[in-house]
Amino acid sequence: MNRLLQWPSLEAPFWVAALAVVVIFPSDLSLATAIAVMALFAVSLDLALGIAGILTLGHALYFGAGAYAAAALATLGWAEPVSGVVLAGIAAALLAGVAGPFILRSRGLPLIMVTLVLGLFAFELANKASDFTGGDNGLSDIVLAPVLGVFHWSVYARVEYLYVLAFLFVGFQGAKRIVGSSFGLALRGIRDNPVRMAYLGAPVQSHLLRAYLSSALLAGVAGALSAQTTRFVGTDVLSINTSIDVLVMLVLGGTGSLYGALVGAIVYMLVHHLAAEWNPYHWMFIIGALLVFVVRIGEGGLVGIARRITERSRQTIGRRAKGRP
């Protein structure tokens, strides 16, 4: 069947492990929260890039839009966090609804350039609109009510982590639903061969737009979660670095499987954390090497490697079993 989704046996243990982090690493929950936020962002990118083949280098636009929307809501007195996240996600999707029809007219290389330039424009805009974004100082007066009116935000980020994890879980299941639907199959068809899709009568543009909107929604949610849990939004949420970071995470884990987004975000963020003391320029050696590595090992990133190893060992086991009379 669907090869991409043949990993459900590992999925339940994954979520259990993610929950267990609260107990096992109680003092690292801020980091875990940040990882979960980026994992959701990477999932959103996988939906657009890995599944639908929309080659975007400017996805920080929607992450940033969600972050600023969440911050703006909190500043305006909308302190309820969950609805704040949802509204921020919708805001990001609306933005995608405006930009998408233009962006999606191009494909491949022009698309890369358009999304890159649009991302830079948004970044400049945020820097210039310092009344709204706080410019270089960012926004830090984000005041939120307790989650569901019960769970108070904690210094140890335990509530933060579980809160983000819940959104990650729901977002991931939603994304999986989309990929597993015939709409999701149509997206992969478009990624493979858009011309033939048109000749199957598919409304290619509208399929792509809906994939893009869903992706932007999730990215906006991730951005909003980032704003809420760190109580801070700086213009760097919109920067090219953010777009590139999430791209590197996704391709490191492997595109097109959704699982790769989770794996990539975890590995990348952990490595980044270990190298936190480093000179940022030295960190670039790591990113550069990772990218070259990912392209060299070919399709599928880390998830692809794991799959190949399991397949090979299964084959060897199968052969040995056959060898015996």
Partner: peptide, 21 residues
């Protein structure tokens, strides 16, 4: 195209890091 983008971004990072070094 994705691989081209990734590889050349990677080279860009490596160049910048080396120039700094």
């Amino acid at each position: 195209e994705l691989d081209q983008v990734l590889m050349t971004i990677g080279l860009m990072f490596l160049t910048t890091a080396s120039l700094n070094l």
